[in-house]
């Protein structure tokens, strides 16, 4: 019994220590403001995490938009409210699905790649050797990936939303024979720039920080073995997915909840 409690206690302490290490990594990496000479490094990383995630994001967005429009159309059609398809689609995407699904895709595509890459650099002593050459890997390797993640995910989310709304429009208008004018005017009448779009952007920035931070830290904190890299990559996807969903719940509650 004592042994069990001690085990639980030790594991909890490990978690707390992990959060502490993660915070230290984040603050140490972001401490120095990027200089002009760091821009090429950040550009390279935006390519790695943003551009390379574009295909999966655009494809998923189109499919999700189309499926949502189809469901909205059939369900709302029962009440003769097909005109509300556009509004429903836009609100659901802008407020929830856009930021959340893009963040999940980002964690799977870019997050795992960041963890694997940094983990491999650690395992092959590249980080150590950099440190011994008097170059701080937190500044040289970690920081550009963090900034690139912070920039890329909100942009990917915006692209996701636009593509998904177009995908939905193609189904609702071209396929189901809805009215294009009503589709857009319905959206424009209901969507508020701050309440719907602004809060969605805030969400995606929060997700960007969380997912990139977890990915970078898991890589940096990898146990330097091949199994270690595998475990860390899995952890990145699992932990950041759960965190994205949990934080989405909290943000939705605080931004849209009626507790004033």
């Amino acid at each position: 019994m004592i042994g069990f409690l001690r085990g639980v206690g030790n594991r909890s302490l490990d978690r707390v220590a992990g959060v502490g290490r993660a915070t230290l990594v984040l603050t140490a990496a972001l401490w120095k403001v990027p200089r002009l000479s760091d821009v090429p490094l950040i550009v390279k990383q935006i390519y790695n995490v943003g551009v390379l995630s574009l295909v999966i994001v655009v494809l998923s967005a189109f499919c999700i938009g189309a499926v949502l429009a189809l469901q909205f159309h059939t369900q709302l059609g029962k009440f003769g409210a097909q005109d509300a398809v556009g509004v429903g689609l836009a609100l659901v995407l802008l407020r929830e699905l856009g930021p959340v699904v893009t963040a999940l895709l980002f964690a799977g595509r870019a997050g795992s790649a960041i963890t694997a890459e940094i983990g491999l650099m650690k395992t092959t002593e590249q980080l150590s050797s950099m440190e011994m050459m008097g170059v701080d890997p937190l500044h040289r390797i970690v920081a550009p990936r963090l900034w690139a993640g912070f920039v890329s995910l909100p942009l990917l989310t915006a692209i996701f939303n636009v593509v998904a709304i177009y995908g939905g429009m193609i189904v609702a208008v071209e396929w189901m024979g809805g009215d294009q004018g009503r589709f857009w005017s319905g959206i424009q009448a209901e969507v508020d720039i701050w309440d719907d779009i602004g809060k969605g952007v805030v969400k995606s920035i929060a997700f960007a920080v969380v997912v990139t931070w977890i990915a970078v830290f898991q890589g940096y904190d990898t146990e330097p073995t091949p199994e270690g890299i595998g475990l860390a990559t899995t952890r990145t996807v699992v932990v950041s997915s759960v965190m994205v969903l949990a934080i989405d719940f909290l943000l939705t509650l605080s931004m849209y909840g009626d507790f004033k």
């Binding site: 836009a90 915006a158 692209i159 857009w184």
Partner: peptide, 15 residues
């Protein structure tokens, strides 16, 4: 493209 998407959302979607 990302910036354009944001502008598009602001102008076309929120009207």
């Amino acid at each position: 493209a990302g910036t354009l998407a944001l502008i598009f959302l602001a102008v076309r979607i929120s009207g």
